[in-house]
C-alpha cells in the first residue's frame, strides 16, 4: 500500500509557480530520493507535503486520506515530519530542548530521547549546550533526531549534505540507513547524489518543477541522470 500519493501537485509562491503537476507514490517503508539542481522544486515539494505551503486538498494523500493544504501541526499528528533545509536549529534552546520540541505533539512511538542519544552519542555529550553551538554535522544530527522525536511515519529530509564535508555526509547516511531499515517511510531530497543513491530504492529527478526522470538507481545510467538533472 502507498503511504504517500501525490497527484497533479501544483505549488505557488505568490504568483510564481514552482511545481507543475507532480505525481508520484511512495510505498510504506520505502526510501526514495528526489534529486535535482537548485530551484528545481525539490524543497517546495517537501514543504507542500508537510503542510508548509497551501496546495489542493486532493493533491496529497496520506494512507488514502486527502490531506493537501492541511496545517503542518495537523500533519505532524498524522505522522508527517519535515527535517528542513539548513537544519534550522532553535538558537534559544539547548540540544535537549530542541529534541523535546520535536516531540511537541506527543505522538507515541518507538523514538525517545534515549534512543536518539543512542543513535547520535555526540548529542548526548552536548545536550546542555545551545543547539547552535554544535558543528554543522552535529546540527544535522540534531535536526534528524528532532525529526525522529515526532515519531513520524513519513520522514521528509531536505538536503542532509548541505555544507558538510564528504566524510561527515557519509557518516550521517550510515546512521540514516539504520533508521530507514526499521521501516520508516522516507523521502530524501539532495543535490549531491553520491550518498543518497546508496540507500534510496527509487529516485525521482526534478527539473523546473516537473519530474524529469524516475527509476531505480541501479537501472539509470549516469548519462540519463545528468541529462534529466541539467536538461542537456
Amino acid at each position: 500500500m502507498s503511504r504517500l500519493v501525490v497527484r497533479q501537485l501544483d505549488a505557488f509562491y505568490g504568483d510564481f509557480q514552482a511545481l507543475f503537476g507532480i505525481s508520484l507514490e511512495v510505498a510504506e517503508g520505502e526510501t526514495v530520493a528526489i534529486i535535482g539542481a537548485n530551484g528545481s522544486g525539490k524543497s517546495t515539494f517537501l514543504k507542500a507535503v508537510a503542510g508548509a505551503l497551501p496546495v489542493a486538498r486532493t493533491a496529497v494523500e496520506l494512507d488514502g486520506v486527502a490531506v493537501g493544504g492541511r496545517p503542518a501541526h495537523e500533519l505532524v499528528d498524522r505522522g508527517v515530519t519535515l527535517v528542513p533545509e539548513g537544519r534550522r536549529i532553535f538558537p534559544s534552546l539547548t540540544v535537549e530542548e530542541n529534541l523535546r520540541v520535536g516531540a511537541y505533539r506527543g505522538r507515541s512511538g518507538r523514538w525517545t530521547l534515549d534512543r536518539v542519544y543512542t543513535l547520535f552519542p555526540r548529542l548526548a555529550e552536548r545536550k546542555r549546550q545551545p543547539g547552535t553551538n554544535l558543528s554543522g554535522g552535529e546540527q544535522q544530527m540534531l535536526a534528524i533526531g528532532r525529526g525522529l522525536m515526532a515519531n513520524p511515519q513519513l520522514l521528509l529530509i531536505d538536503e542532509i549534505s548541505l555544507g558538510l564535508a564528504p566524510v561527515v555526509i557519509k557518516q550521517l547516511y550510515d546512521v540514516l540507513a539504520t533508521v530507514t531499515a526499521e521501516g520508516i517511510t522516507t523521502v530524501l531530497v539532495e543535490q549531491d547524489m553520491s550518498q543518497v543513491l546508496r540507500i534510496a530504492r527509487r529516485v525521482f529527478c526534478f527539473r523546473q518543477g516537473i519530474v524529469s526522470l524516475s527509476g531505480r538507481p541501479g537501472e539509470l545510467s549516469r548519462g540519463e541522470i545528468a541529462a534529466a538533472y541539467f536538461g542537456t
Binding site: 505532524v76 515530519t81 528542513p84 532553535f90 534559544s92 534552546l93
Partner: peptide, 19 residues
C-alpha cells in the same frame, strides 16, 4: 519551549507541530 522556538523561528516551529 514552544514559545521560545516560535520566537526563534516560527516557520520551523510550525513544522514541529506547534500551532
Amino acid at each position: 519551549r514552544a514559545f521560545r522556538a516560535t520566537a526563534d523561528d516560527q516557520a520551523t516551529a510550525a513544522l514541529m507541530g506547534i500551532d
